[in-house]
Design a protein around this nucleic acid. Structure first.
Length: 732
DNA sequence: GAGTTTGAAACT
DNA sequence: CAGTTTCAAACTC
């Protein structure tokens, strides 16, 4: 029986706790709850898993990131494939491996793949090593102390639980492993388990931080939860879940600065009926040591029956997840766009496909296959994990630069979209705040910008670049909420919807003193370059990329969420949008556009510090304004529709009547004034009249407006007539 | 279009 | 954190 110590319980995210609670209720005797707490960094001793028949070790540490694709894949008979990336950097303590089974030995055979047949038996194929020495039966593997980072729970054919255990040294503050300077070994594990059909998504990210990095090693702990599912014909159904959780020693409150770490949301299901699910495990771990990069992990949302899956969430260091979309471009070949769900930010990174010297150094890990040089790897952010959610595999295949597909970076399953681990490179200066970069950010090598390394470009500039694939980064906040549909929608729109990109011209700014590098500047605040603005001494452009980057960093230093939308969802369960900070109005009554709440067409909330606020639900002033605004909007729409109708009818008329109506070599303008045109014209005139009336215009003014509108209509008709004469000299 | 008002951002 | 200054947009005339 497994035990989860109270201390570990306290460290688990709520999702896990929920599951755990279930397990406790059903499985765990009270005495197990009294497991002796362990102090950090040593993880608590998890009681021996006496029922553990199989312990599987995946991805020996020595495999390193350059493991071959064979090494990196685990597959199921149903087509599910697991990409198991090696972890050469992870060190730490995992009690499960150490204490739960004698199978954990110091000499683990090299395992090349894990096969999970439909009956969920987990078979470990050993490709090397002295399997006989471990005394384990075929399909059983022992753990290798270093580098193992994956814990998987499942059931063997006999119904016995299968475990993939972490090495006991896993995630100990990285100071002892071969890499030497590894400081953080973020690992992410997703586990989705149903009785009899374990579904597991695991990803891990090991990172080699540069010497300047201060990221703290992530503490990982392992939990084993045993849950007995309802009795089935398959025999005792016991699913053991090993939950690994990272204890972020530092910076939990700072999502952007925290290396991604583990979490897992364990899902249990009472009925063993789910169809085969896909499992994707990916990792990139090779970051040149000199590059101070972090590894990246690709995680894709599990594709599973929606009704049965509570959720599988990967949580960043702060307990939140966030999707980002990285869009690699075919030309230039290494452009990636990142999008954060829920925001209009579009992070785009130009990545140099460094397969050369910079990546040759593999962080001190035992890189045994120098011939394989994945496009490397870009370290986005410790808190960023990438995946390719919903884009079809085909599309990805078409666009992903070849280097990306090498060296165990792409995981494909028969039922789920491909997961892609994108190359990453470090972002030395702004990396900690990558997730908060301004919208439309393009990171591109910054010439002469010293160690800044990248320029930040607005997305609109990048949209011109042919792009082909999408990769979603999981960062730190809304993993579970970034639904595939949402993601797909974004992706289909290239991170920036076409209509949005083309029909949302930003109002030109008029900055004079801020150089457009302050948040005063709307362009800058929205992560866009100034374009056709009226600003003076503007630095918000490519010519001043280094300054711009510094300014961004400065803003982020002051406010880590400076570039995040101010208007977001309210508390959980609240559907209304609300200002993240609240306004501070004093004189406007929050009924002027000075008020950010009013401007965003939302009501002030309790977090606002405004005085004399009239921007609340029952406010008569607000209702009046809203009514007028709505009326105005309707008028505008009607007017626009009328004009469109007029134009289209004129065009249609020309098309239909041009050959027939001629007069001395050309049509007379009045011949275009058909019934339809007359009606459309009247619509325009009526709209004008209504508008004048609603704005309390004097009659004279109203008449003038109507006449002017009439004049415009006539001019339009005449214009079309003239055009027909010019364009159709033969027919007319 | 110039001048004023306003409140967020920036600064102290 | 509070008070002040700076800034650019919103607004008024």
């Amino acid at each position: 029986m497994d035990v989860v110590s109270p201390e570990l319980n306290s460290l688990l995210p709520d999702e896990i706790m929920d599951t755990e609670a279930i397990a406790m209720e059903e499985e765990l005797p009270a005495e197990h709850l009294a497991a002796p707490p362990q102090s950090e960094p040593e993880p608590p001793q998890v009681p021996m898993e006496t029922e553990l028949p199989e312990i599987v070790s995946l991805c020996p540490a020595t495999t390193s990131m350059q493991m071959t694709s064979t090494d990196a894949q685990c597959s199921t008979s149903s087509g599910t494939q697991l990409l198991l990336a090696p972890s050469s950097l992870i060190s730490g303590t995992t009690t499960s491996a150490k204490t739960t089974s004698p199978a954990v030995t110091q000499n683990l055979p090299k395992i090349s793949s894990v096969t999970v047949p439909a009956n969920h038996q987990l078979i470990i194929n050993k490709v090397s090593g002295a399997s006989a020495a471990d005394g384990k039966s075929p399909g059983t593997a022992v753990l290798k102390p270093e580098g193992q980072k994956l814990l998987v729970a499942g059931l063997s054919k006999t119904g016995q639980p299968i475990m993939l255990a972490l090495p006991h040294t896993w995630n100990k503050p990285a100071t002892t492993q071969g890499t030497g300077d590894a400081k953080a070994q973020p690992t992410q594990i997703k586990m989705l388990t149903t009785v009899g059909k374990p579904v597991i998504a695991v990803s891990s990210a090991s990172q080699l931080m540069g010497s300047s990095s201060t990221l703290q090693a992530q503490q990982l702990k392992t939990l084993q939860i045993t849950k007995k599912p309802p009795v089935s014909t398959a025999g005792p159904m016991i699913t053991k879940l090993i939950i690994t959780k990272a204890l972020n020693n530092k910076g939990l409150s700072s999502p952007a600065s925290v290396a991604p770490v583990v979490t897992g949301r364990v899902v249990t299901q009472s009925t063993p009926v789910t169809p085969p699910r896909t499992i994707t495990i990916g990792e990139t771990s090779t970051v040149p040591q000199n590059a101070s990069g972090n590894s990246k992990v690709a995680i894709s949302p599990l594709k599973s029956p929606s009704k049965t899956v509570k959720s599988v969430q990967t949580v960043g260091g702060v307990g939140t997840s966030q999707f980002k979309t990285i869009i690699p471009f075919s030309t230039p070949p290494n452009v990636q766009q990142i999008q954060v769900p829920g925001s209009r930010f579009h992070y785009v990174r130009l990545v140099t496909a460094t397969t050369g010297s910079s990546t040759a150094q593999s962080s001190g890990s035992t890189n045994t296959n120098p011939s394989i040089q994945p496009a490397k790897p870009v370290m986005m952010n410790a808190a960023v994990r990438m995946s390719v959610p919903i884009v079809s595999a085909q599309s990805i295949k078409q666009v992903v630069p070849k280097p990306l597909t090498s060296a165990a970076q792409v995981v494909t399953t028969s039922q789920t979209p491909q997961r892609l681990i994108m190359p990453a490179t470090h972002l030395p200066q702004i990396q900690p705040n990558l997730t908060n970069l301004p919208p439309g950010t393009v990171l591109t090598p910054a010439h002469g910008s010293g160690n800044m390394g990248y320029a930040v470009l607005p997305a609109p500039y990048v949209t011109q670049i042919p792009q082909s694939a999408f990769v979603t980064l999981t960062s730190s906040s809304t993993f579970s909420t970034a639904t595939p549909i949402q993601t797909q929608a974004r992706l289909s729109l290239n991170g920036l919807s076409t209509s949005e990109a083309t029909s949302r011209p930003r109002k030109p700014c008029n900055c004079t003193r801020s150089q457009c590098l302050k948040l005063y500047c709307d362009c800058f605040a929205n992560g866009e370059f100034c374009n056709n603005c009226n600003c003076v001494n503007c630095f918000n452009n490519l010519d001043h990329e280094s300054e711009r980057l510094k300014a961004i960093k400065s803003c982020l230093d002051r406010n880590p969420v400076a570039f995040k939308p101010k208007i977001g969802k309210g508390k959980e369960g609240e559907s209304d949008r609300r200002h993240s900070k609240g306004c501070n109005c004093k004189k406007s009554g929050c009924l002027k556009n000075y008020c950010e709440c009013y401007e965003a067409k939302i009501m002030c909330s309790s977090i606002c510090k405004c005085m004399g606020c009239k921007n609340f639900e029952e406010s008569p002033e607000r209702k009046t304004l809203m009514h007028l605004a709505d009326a105005a909007e309707v008028r505008v729409q009607q007017q626009t529709a009328a004009k469109t109708k007029l134009s289209s009818q004129i065009s249609d008329l020309l098309t239909r009547t041009t050959p027939a109506i001629t007069s001395g070599g050309g049509k007379l303008p009045y011949t275009f004034v058909t019934k339809e045109v007359a009606e459309a014209t009247c619509d325009c005139l009526l709209e004008q009249a209504e508008q004048a009336e609603l704005t309390d215009q004097p009659q004279a003014v109203a008449e003038r407006l109507i006449l002017e509108e009439f004049g415009r209509c006539l001019r339009r008709i005449i214009s079309f007539a003239g055009k027909v004469k010019t364009d159709c000299p033969i027919n007319c």
